[in-house]
Design a protein around this nucleic acid. Structure first.
Lengths: 374, 374
DNA sequence: CGAATTAGTTTACTCACTAAACTAATTATG
DNA sequence: CATAATTAGTTTAGTGAGTAAACTAATTCG
């Protein structure tokens, strides 16, 4: 039960001041005071705390037409570093970055995709990264692991394409490195990254189209997980009564129509070949191969159904799409947007992911930063 | 921007104390102190304020095995009254009740269903109700109007079966009665009523099946409206690619399959009659008429698709169903629950609405109470 | 140089909380 | 029946995060 107390007030206001310095900095104490409606005295006290903790620094003054020059405050992004890991079926991607997502060190390793090997593999990767991290006040503040599957209470519940549902990533790594470890779904990390770096909109979602289809949901400015962590299992919403069978046990699931896996399989079927990769597809669509054009027509059609369903369920301010299709051919988004109409309400803004294939890893950095800054 | 202040602390804690007296009362100051983790001194001060405002009263002592007897506190539900109105295409239902939803006066009038007549009709109904309300400390604290359509910023945006989208209910009634007026979607009021009277679960939804299908969503203990008030337009989520046409302009919308309107139309088609009412249906299904049994099979099938979509989008703790079908034949719920399976996650509890056909009106009383108590 | 302007600090104050001592009321017990 | 034990609720003194307003500091302009 969260009750009111002096500490709560100070924590709330410190958090607001920190956020404003990150989002709108460099900024002066006076401007923060005006923006938040707190007195200059309060802001000065809070800023002094942040300076004492090396979280914020004064970086000179601004030129103003009259009056004393304001002292500009900047968040010390390099007061600490975070490690972000994307664990897919075939690879481990690992990013080290300061709390602003820069000074990156990004590596990718193939993985054996065996549950008993993943922890040793990860430990080795992380140790290699840690050895290269620059000195900083707080060092490594956290490790975040993005999982292509369902996560609840910091534990993997289910992974469709990898055998990691029994692996206790959080405790194994926490025990080894003694650093806080967060396990989170990849679509959630993606939208968190977009939210913190580019689109600070309190109600927005991000559709992540890969082998499956996930949905990261931001509600009231926070990631929404649902009661057991499987909110956003969007690939398994049903868009066709008695439709195509899905390994989840149901029929007509969205990802049997609109996922990369489904569409590339459809293209392979049309071309009567065994398999077509995303790279192959990009080459074909670039030369306007008719089958691949048809595949994109299907993608647009199915995505527009999925997006209408999101709008009529959640009515977000913004929908971001993260897929190789839209990353390579951004004007597909416009086609999707144009195909979404309703006589009963306004449409919703749809845009491509800005962080693209870095969104999961950068979202992981944000996750560690949020936890560190409380 | 909500910043921390002394007033915020007191407001938060007053709100928590009030809530605990409502939910767990009659309760003593000492018990509240233990539950909230605030000191007895703080609770005594807050309770004194509530006593001074006639919001709470002492109703004697409890028997305990040893020590001084605790003084029991009870919320004064009858310190004020609220008026709740359900405006459908054919009727105005109007309920006056004290802040606990009792001491009801419920009336229903037919309405002309004309936009220029609705405000005079409402004013007459409300005046008649007000004249019969018992004396109380605060009098009528608010009027809530439930709309079968989309509501945003206290204004009706769209109503499918009535011509009220241009009517400014809020300001017309506020100006006439000088009482705060809330306009809200009916499905939202329904789930709010269930949340406050029966199921205090922070993440839950209620499916309201009438002519259309609406979804009331509670997230983090609050009604979720989305960015423009059309979250929960669940009837217009698509469950069939290129499916049945819907007046909204799309194809395959859920309410073209699972709404009362759609299913009764299907039954009429089977029986080759012009129209079948819900009353007729109830009689037919009671005698196990095969066509009506088939209709319920369809209802179960379609609802189970819709519910799977809710689960995979929002993962609520509980799903309530409010429909004449399930109200009259409650074991339909069990059939629906049994038909929902998934290999990737646990099922979700599904139950019939407890407030049934009173849920909208009682939700309206809750709405006014919440606003009154801040 | 002094007036005007703006930034940031200091001071005196308020208010909601806490801890701990207090009073009050009740039961159990010798 | 006095007294110990127990629990409820109040009083008191103190803390800390906020406020308003007076202050100092730094800068531009005429």
């Amino acid at each position: 039960m969260v009750t009111g107390s002096k500490e709560l007030i100070r924590d709330m206001n410190t958090s607001l001041v920190t956020k404003i310095i990150i989002d709108k900095g460099p900024i002066s104490r006076a401007s923060i005071s005006k923006e938040l409606g707190l007195t200059k005295a309060t802001i000065s006290a809070i800023v002094q705390n942040l300076l004492d903790k090396y979280l914020v620094e004064e970086i000179g003054t601004a030129n103003v037409p009259s009056g004393r020059k304001p002292v500009l405050l900047k968040f010390c992004y390099d007061c600490g570093y975070a490690i972000s890991i994307d664990v897919s079926a075939t690879h481990i991607s690992i990013l080290t970055a300061h709390l602003g997502g820069e000074n990156c060190n990004l590596v990718q390793y193939p993985t054996a995709n065996k549950s008993e090997l993943i922890i040793p593999e990860l430990i080795q990767c992380i140790e290699s990264q840690i050895s290269q991290v620059p000195e900083s006040v707080y060092g490594i503040v956290g490790i975040t692991i993005g999982i292509h599957g369902i996560v609840n209470n910091n534990q993997v519940v289910f992974t469709p394409y990898s055998p990691y549902s029994e692996v206790d990533f959080a405790n194994e790594l926490k025990n080894h490195f003694n650093i806080s470890v967060i396990i989170e779904n990849e679509a959630n990390l993606s939208i968190l990254g977009e939210f913190m770096f580019h689109y600070p909109l309190n109600n927005m979602v991000g559709i992540s189209v890969h082998s499956g289809i996930g949905l990261g949901i931001i509600i009231n400015g926070d990631l929404y997980h649902g009661s057991n962590g499987y909110a956003g299992e969007f690939g398994h919403t049903i868009i066709e009564i008695d439709g195509r069978p899905c390994p989840c046990g149901n029929n007509g699931c969205f990802e049997q129509y609109a996922s990369e896996r489904a569409l590339l399989a459809e293209l392979a079927r049309l071309k009567q070949v065994n398999k077509i990769s995303m790279n192959d597809f990009v080459k074909l669509y670039t030369i306007k191969d008719p089958d691949s054009v048809y595949i994109i027509q299907l993608f647009v059609k199915y995505m527009s159904i999925g997006i209408r369903n999101i709008i009529n369920n959640l009515n977000p301010e913004l929908i971001l799409i993260n897929s190789s299709f839209t990353m390579n051919f951004p004007n597909i988004i416009e086609e999707i947007e144009a195909s979404i109409t309703s006589k009963i309400h306004k449409p919703c803004k749809i845009m491509p992911s800005k962080l693209q294939d870095m969104s999961i890893l950068l979202g992981g950095i944000c996750m560690s930063r949020n936890l560190f800054l409380i």
